[in-house]
C-alpha cells in the first residue's frame, strides 16, 4: 500500500486515458481521412478537444490561483473532451467550456454534482437546440454497417469521440481496482444492474440494440466513480451504482442510449444531494424542537 497525492492520482488517470485518445484518433480521424471525408488536420480532432480542455483549465487556474494545479477538475474537463460527439464544433466546445467550467464550480459549492455529466449534458442540449446535431460521425452517417458484437467490443459503435472502445475500458478496470482510492463497486453494480435489466428486456422484446453500450461502460468505469461525486461507504456505493444502472436502463429504453449514463449519473448525484440536504434540514428541525 502506497500513499499517493491528488496529483499522483490524477496523473495516473490521465495516462490511462491515452489509449482512448489514440483509438479516437484512429476511429474518428484516420478512418474518416482514409475515406476522404476529412482533411489531414482533422485526424487529430480528439487531441484538439483534449488540448482545449487543458487550456480552459489552465486559464481558470491562472485566473483564480495564479498557478496551474493538477487536480480532479483537469481530469473532469479532459473526460468531457473524450465523451463529446464527433460533430462537436471546436469553437463551440471551447466557448461552452469557458462558460460552463466556472459555472459548474459555482454549482459544486452548494452540492457535489457530477461536473463531467453536467457540462456534457448542457453542451449536448445547446447543440441539440441550435444545430443539426447527430451522434454519428461522417462515416457512420454515410454508410450502413452491420456490426458484430466483436466489432462493438473493439469500439466501432456510435458514441463519444474517444469513449467507444469497450475493450480498453474492460482492460483498465482490473488495473484500477488495485488502487485503494478507486471505488470499484460502482462500475460493477452499474453494469450488473444495466446488463441484467437489458437482458430481461431483450428476452421480452427481442430488441438488443442497447445491450452493449460503449459509453455506459466507459462512464461507469471512469466518470461515475469520480471521488468527489460518489459515496464513500460500501453500501452507499452499491446503492448509488444500482440507481444509476436502473435509471440508465430506463433512459436508454425510452429516450437515448448514448446519453443514458450521463443523465442517470446527473440525476443520481442530484438525488444524493437532495437526500443530504433533507437530512440536514431534518436535523436542524430536530435541534430546534
Amino acid at each position: 500500500m502506497q500513499a499517493k497525492t491528488i496529483k499522483n492520482l490524477v496523473v495516473t488517470n490521465l495516462l490511462i486515458l491515452i489509449p482512448f485518445v489514440l483509438y479516437g484518433i484512429f476511429k474518428n480521424g484516420y478512418l474518416l481521412y482514409e475515406h476522404h471525408l476529412i482533411n489531414f488536420w482533422l485526424i487529430f480532432k480528439p487531441l484538439y478537444l483534449v488540448i482545449i480542455a487543458f487550456l480552459v483549465k489552465l486559464m481558470g487556474d491562472l485566473f483564480s490561483y495564479h498557478k496551474f494545479k493538477i487536480d480532479y477538475n483537469l481530469l473532469c474537463l479532459i473526460l468531457v473532451a473524450l465523451i463529446m460527439p464527433y460533430n462537436i464544433n471546436l469553437l463551440v466546445f471551447f466557448m461552452s467550456l469557458i462558460i460552463l467550467y466556472p459555472l459548474s464550480n459555482l454549482v459544486n459549492r452548494y452540492g457535489n454534482i457530477n461536473k463531467v455529466c453536467l457540462i456534457y449534458l448542457v453542451i449536448i442540449l445547446i447543440n441539440s437546440i441550435f444545430t443539426n446535431f447527430t451522434y454519428e460521425s461522417l462515416l457512420e452517417s454515410s454508410h450502413t454497417f452491420s456490426f458484430t458484437y466483436f466489432d462493438l467490443l473493439l469500439g466501432r459503435s456510435v458514441g463519444g469521440i474517444s469513449s467507444t472502445c469497450i475493450l480498453a475500458s474492460l482492460i483498465i478496470y482490473p488495473y484500477l481496482t488495485f488502487s485503494i482510492y478507486y471505488k470499484k463497486e460502482i462500475p460493477l453494480t452499474i453494469n450488473i444492474t444495466y446488463l441484467g435489466l437489458m437482458f430481461i428486456y431483450y428476452l421480452v422484446t427481442q430488441n438488443s440494440a442497447s445491450l452493449l453500450n460503449s459509453d455506459l461502460i466507459f462512464a461507469s468505469i471512469l466518470i461515475c466513480p469520480l471521488p468527489e461525486y460518489s459515496p464513500t461507504n460500501r453500501l452507499g456505493k452499491i446503492i448509488y451504482g444500482v440507481i444509476i444502472g436502473f435509471l440508465a436502463f430506463l433512459i436508454a429504453i425510452f429516450f437515448n442510449s448514448t446519453i443514458s449514463i450521463y443523465l442517470a449519473t446527473l440525476v443520481t448525484s442530484l438525488l444524493l444531494n437532495f437526500l443530504i440536504w433533507g437530512e440536514n434540514q431534518h436535523k436542524k428541525l430536530a435541534k430546534r424542537a
Binding site: 500500500m1 497525492t5 492520482l9 480532479y72 471505488k183 471521488p227 468527489e228 459515496p231 464513500t232 461507504n233
Partner: peptide, 16 residues
C-alpha cells in the same frame, strides 16, 4: 512540499 488540500471524498481512510 505537500500542502493540505480539500477532502476529495475518495474514502481511502474508511477502507484502511
Amino acid at each position: 512540499d505537500v500542502e493540505e488540500e480539500k477532502c476529495i471524498n475518495c474514502g481511502a481512510c474508511l477502507k484502511v
